[in-house]
């Protein structure tokens, strides 16, 4: 039982990061119908900036904010100079543009921060808590708390604010939104900025658990994509649920089946689900425009 609890704690913690990444995928997808393969790099930027800035003596909150700001700037630049310009290109061309962006960002990070691993201390001490025989680190609590707060804030933004409603409207019907006066181009930029902020914040809180290095975003991003597809592309609640499902399944199978196959779990789940439910768990199967 203690073991099961331990696996569950680990799973929920890492699942939270997947959820944040998946939410980022969903927001960008809604606004522009682009899958942004550079989403993982936002996580990397957040983690690297926070780790290196605090090491240089910058207070933690300031370092996190700087990381978020940097990621948002990068996100807006990608949206403005790459995605917007290639609006009418095919799905696969857009995929390659965002992959090009992610290769570029990793290369940039290597130049700016170097290729070595960076350590970031836990936000509030190393003394762990015990929960029914399982060890819960304070950093896990930070991850959970921050994720919950961000998801809540994102939900409020989309349902309660004018800007959020305009973004939602655009995802439902781009033309109609345009007709009622929504600036669709700004919506795409805002979506990239928002998803970058979510990713970077996730990167900052997870950095004390995983270390920060230039390649940290690759797997986190891909699993975030899997989680987003699992929940149904463009479905925010589904994305969060998908992230937690992937995280927990991964941790449990690492414990009970095989730790070596841990990374395959997310993809086995998503392939299996897509075979039987082509629109993900919570999505509707799309109809193709003729």
């Amino acid at each position: 039982m203690a073991e099961f609890l331990q696996y569950l704690v680990t799973g929920v913690t890492i699942g939270s990061i997947y959820a944040l990444a998946a939410l980022g995928f969903a927001i960008v997808y809604n606004a522009s119908h682009v899958i942004n393969f550079a989403q993982g790099e936002f996580i990397m930027i957040g983690g690297m900036a926070t780790a290196t800035l605090t090491a240089a003596g910058v207070p933690l909150p300031l370092a996190i904010l700087a990381g978020i700001a940097g990621a948002m700037l990068v996100g807006v630049l990608i949206a403005k100079f790459a995605v917007e310009r290639a609006r009418n290109a095919s799905v696969v061309t857009l995929i390659i543009i965002t992959i090009g962006a992610s290769i570029f960002l990793r290369g940039l990070a290597e130049v700016v921060w170097g290729k070595e691993f960076h350590r970031l201390d836990s936000f509030s001490g190393n003394a762990p808590l015990m929960l029914g025989g399982a060890v819960v680190t304070t950093q896990s609590l930070w991850v959970l708390g921050v994720t919950a707060a961000l998801i809540l804030a994102t939900g409020l933004f989309f349902n309660r604010t004018m800007a959020g409603k305009a973004m939602l409207a655009t995802s439902h019907n781009r033309l109609a939104a345009q007709l009622v006066g929504v600036n669709v181009r700004h919506v795409v930029l805002a979506a990239f900025a928002l998803s970058a902020a979510l990713g970077a914040m996730g990167g900052a809180v997870v950095a004390p658990i995983t270390y920060s290095y230039t390649e940290m975003g690759i797997m986190l991003g891909l699993k975030g994509f899997a989680a987003a597809a699992l929940g149904g592309l463009g479905n925010g609640v589904g994305a969060v649920a998908g992230g937690l499902i992937v995280g927990i399944a991964e941790s449990l199978s690492a414990g009970y089946i095989s730790s070596a196959y841990k990374d395959a779990v997310a993809f086995v789940i998503i392939v299996a689900v897509l075979v039987f439910m082509p629109g993900g768990l919570f999505g509707r199967a799309g109809t193709e425009r003729v």
């Binding site: 331990q6 696996y7 270390y211 940290m216 797997m219 690492a254 730790s259």
Partner: peptide
């Protein structure tokens, strides 16, 4: 990125 399962 995490070996807690093995350590557990």
């Amino acid at each position: 990125a995490d070996v807690s399962a093995q350590v557990t």
